[in-house]
């Protein structure tokens, strides 16, 4: 399978679209838009998994796709959106600061991800290599989002993006046992739940979800 064949092209299209949504997530100011973009990425992930299932003839990937659609495309974004709607209006926007450096950094991270992934996966099938390269880029962008945002909800969104990247990498590799995927997904889900609870607690204790508030409460500060 290679360039110009429909299986490859569609997989590439879906992966590229997911990467684009990662950029959109980085640039969004309003939490409502963040959750919307997160849902879109979840749906795209489900489509990518389903397409891989179709191409590889692997039925269990359709199950992965279903889980992704239900959890990533609908469930988690809806919960996040409700949490965001419960915030006071001033906190519903979470500006990432000056956009240009963040975006330039993001472009650099994508280049770095491609430069790492393409030589590292030499020997693997072409389809998997492209998926892994894009997945690594999505992972790094998620991490960048966690590093640049201060609001807890936006940081949770960054975490979920990272997990989307992981799943995309996993579905691209033919013959990856379902249990590995499910356990990865479950692990990240637990982390997300903890982060959600943490964000709630933060909001209740301090009246805001700005993680910078925590700095004052660290023990080792003189």
């Amino acid at each position: 399978m290679g360039l110009g064949e429909i299986g490859y092209d569609v997989a590439h299209l879906l992966g590229g679209a997911m990467l684009l949504v990662s950029f959109v997530l980085l640039a969004q100011r309003r939490l409502e838009a963040v959750t919307g973009a997160l849902a879109l990425q979840g749906v795209l992930l489900a489509l990518a998994a389903a397409w891989q299932g179709h191409v590889q003839g692997a039925g269990q990937l359709l199950l992965t796709a279903g889980i992704a659609l239900a959890a990533k495309g609908l469930g988690i974004p809806l919960v996040l959106r409700r949490m965001a709607a419960a915030l006071p209006p001033a906190q519903r926007a979470d500006a990432p600061g000056p956009l240009a450096p963040v975006m330039l950094g993001a472009a650099g991270l994508v280049a770095l991800a491609f430069l790492v992934a393409v030589p590292a996966t030499r020997g693997a099938p072409v389809l998997a290599r492209v998926d892994i390269a894009i997945a690594l880029a999505i992972l790094l962008l998620g991490a960048l989002m966690m590093a640049t945002r201060r609001g807890a909800l936006a940081q949770v969104a960054g975490l979920l993006t990272m997990e989307n990247g992981l799943i995309l990498a996993a579905v691209g590799v033919a013959g990856m046992p379902l249990v590995v995927e499910l356990s990865t997904a479950g692990l990240v889900l637990v982390v997300a739940v903890i982060a959600g609870v943490f964000a709630r607690q933060l909001g209740e204790r301090f009246g805001a979800q700005d993680t910078a508030l925590l700095d004052r409460h660290r023990g080792e500060r003189r």
């Binding site: 991270l109 770095l112 790094l140 991490a143 960048l144 966690m146 590093a147 201060r150 993680t211 910078a212 925590l214 700095d215 660290r218 080792e220 500060r221 003189r222």
Partner: peptide, 16 residues
């Protein structure tokens, strides 16, 4: 005396 955000950024920077 780094704040939490800077610690995260430091770890992330090391990874990168």
């Amino acid at each position: 005396n780094l704040p939490l955000g800077a610690c995260l950024a430091l770890a992330f920077g090391t990874l990168v």
